[in-house]
Amino acid sequence: MSPFRSLSRAMLLGFVRDKTSVFFTILFPLMFLVLFGALLTNQGVSKSKIIQVGPVAVLDQSQGLGEILDITRRNDLAAAQEEVRQGDFVAVVRQEGDRYQLFYTAADQVRAGTVRGVFGQLIGQANAAGVPQRFTLEAEQVEDKSLKVIQYVTPGLLSWAISMGATFGAAMTLVTWRQKKTLRRLRLAPVRTTTVVSARVGASVAIALVQTAIFLGVASLPMFGLRLSDYWWMCIPMVIAGTLVFMAIGMVAGGVAKTSEAAAGIANLIVLPMAFLSGTFFPLDAAPAWVRTVSNIFPMKHLNEGMLDVMVRGQGPASILPELGIILGFGLVIGLIAVLLFRWDDV
């Protein structure tokens, strides 16, 4: 076996046999995905609470709707919409002449879908009763037309998972190898430094690609309902670039830290706040302008954006090139710092 292959193999085996790293790299982010997915796509079967503003003929005339719908009457449309936004109700409905308007929430996808279905049917029946078709239904989400939660959350959590894996992988390897003198031992073997580094990069990229596959696989399960766009595979170069930049960050953490505990602390201190400020867990649209400006200095923000673009926003392959360039630029700069901080030995 070539030194490159045997070193990559040694590192991968070391990773796979370490239950803690496997948990934190693969299962832990997956738990977040399951948590977000389960919390935000509630599959309850209880009645859907809706608000009716003014007289709505199809509701007033139909029988037996009480089984599915729990109807409350209000007079003010704007106030009612606000109540939907607050999550107290699933939808608001009103009638203006022949137009029915349905305002529903995206926070409760299942119930909102039920309500839309029910209205579709009611209006269908009303239309069937009288030709030509008089009634039309306009359904509109009360939130802005941004992405469904799982669509938004998956790329973000994936880039977070990859960042964690790459940062911790690089930082821990560097510190423990330095402590255990494995680095010295490698230095005494006729193997190039670039071979050692590229073996570590190869192992990390392989881990990241496995993470991606598992992640997308789970998110695409019917219960989570992720729908990938046509160019989702363009996330692969993003994943690789993200791995590189976060490995460089891990090398910096490992270069500064003396113990693996310190390295883990530093890595967490960098990655976790960056994840929040980069809009990994929730969108930054509601964040203050300065936060959005500051977020641009984080490579994870660009990783998120690129992943969203190609995975769920359906943008073409060329769209990620700017983000890819920015990430690789970060990687280059941080990588240079890592080289300057690199030490073979503790002393």
Binding site: M1, S6, L7, R9, K180, K181, R185, P190
Partner: peptide, 27 residues
């Protein structure tokens, strides 16, 4: 030259056979 260092500088979680084969491959 062959060097045996003070600390046992092995790769983490590899078996004895995997360790020595990895080192062998470097040469």
């Amino acid at each position: 030259i062959g060097v045996q260092l003070q600390a046992s500088s092995f790769f983490e979680r590899l078996t004895a056979r995997e360790q020595i084969r990895t080192f062998a491959s470097l040469y």
